[in-house]
């Protein structure tokens, strides 16, 4: 945590562990990230376990009849949310790689991710 002229700046980590569409958590957590961006905190997003599916390329929800929110991850950069970390092990067991992600991400091993998580001030997990 640090004090800036505008007030307190905390390290916020959003932990995403759920796949999209099966439940609403991924979509509504992205809404929190977008609103939260206005608060000028030190934000990062972690994608672990089925959460990595949120970023999978090729999502097409037309036949399902719900909104495809995966393009929104590409808009995060405009909100100055640029720290997107994807757990290496989670990708591997799902047969995915960085090339399969809709946005540029940083791949991080679980051990490194655990260290990173440890250094946060606020963790929001969905």
């Amino acid at each position: 945590m640090s004090e800036m002229e505008g007030g307190i700046v905390k390290k916020f980590l959003y932990v995403n562990r759920k796949a999209p569409y099966g439940t609403v958590y991924a979509q509504e957590s992205l809404e929190v990230v977008l609103i939260g961006a206005a608060f000028e905190q030190d934000v990062s997003l972690a994608f672990i376990d089925d959460g990595v599916y949120q970023l999978a390329k090729g999502q097409d929800t037309k036949a399902l009849g719900v909104k495809n929110f995966s393009p929104t991850y590409r808009a995060l950069e405009d909100y100055d949310v640029t720290k997107l970390f994807v757990e290496k092990e989670s990708l591997e067991v799902r047969g995915l790689s960085a090339d399969d992600m809709v946005v540029p991400v940083t791949i991080m091993g679980a051990q490194e991710m655990a260290e990173y998580m440890n250094g946060q001030d606020v963790i929001l997990s969905f």
């Binding site: 307190i8 809404e31 929190v32 609103i35 939260g36 905190q41 606020v122 963790i123 929001l124």
Partner: peptide, 14 residues
Amino acid sequence: LGQLIEAGIQADRL
């Protein structure tokens, strides 16, 4: 939702 972010900023623990 801003109220949630503020809750994270202002509280010692969320």
